[in-house]
Design a protein around this nucleic acid. Sequence first.
DNA 1: AACTCGGGGCA
DNA 2: TGCCCAGAGTT
Length: 216
Amino acid sequence: MLSKEKTLEVVNIMAEMFPEAECELTHRNPFELVIAVALSAQATDVSVNKVTPALFEKYPTPEAFVQAPLEDIMNMIKTIGLYRNKAKNIKACCQMLIEDFGGEVPQTREELVKLPGVGRKTANVVLGDAFNVPAIAVDTHVERVSKRLRIVKQKATVLEVEEALMKKIPKDMWVKTHHRMIFFGRYHCIARQPKCETCPVFDYCQEGKSRLLKQK
DNA sequence: AACTCGGGGCA
DNA sequence: TGCCCAGAGTT
């Protein structure tokens, strides 16, 4: 496995690659962030950003979503896939926000994951981006990059990835690290065709080396 | 741990 | 055409 020191070096190199790396999901407040990130499950950030502006303009608050016709929400998010469950989750989520949390987005992980459609990953994004609470959200990019670099073993679970990153990276860097790894995974260490030939962290990457050997 | 949801993007 | 996408919920 990649050592703590080298993991930190790798993250710093990623920071140089994407100095502006931040959440690409459009959001103006914690509430919109919760909904937008929940909608992004198994969908691209690009496709989510296409539907959220109109959605939040029409339904800006939990109260508005609760009163909205389910059919209309479904129709407005139809292009992102999994839209039936997601539309129902939005309404149920908003209902719970009103009934159990006074209409405000809760600021602990235990409370956040109670919200329908909000799992550990979404909760961690909200904690980090909306409330500045240190957390590492492990999505497909973070998981893939961590495994290719052997920061964790190949068969590690999502939770094990999160724990390993928390152990190897200083707490005050958690949120930024998460964004940098996502950018790195999205634009460089791409799932199907990683750009190993031009990769700044190639020297640290076990999978990159074996992949290049295989090509010959 | 494995399975399902799902339309759109891209090769 | 086939594979995958800033996951969550259920079994």
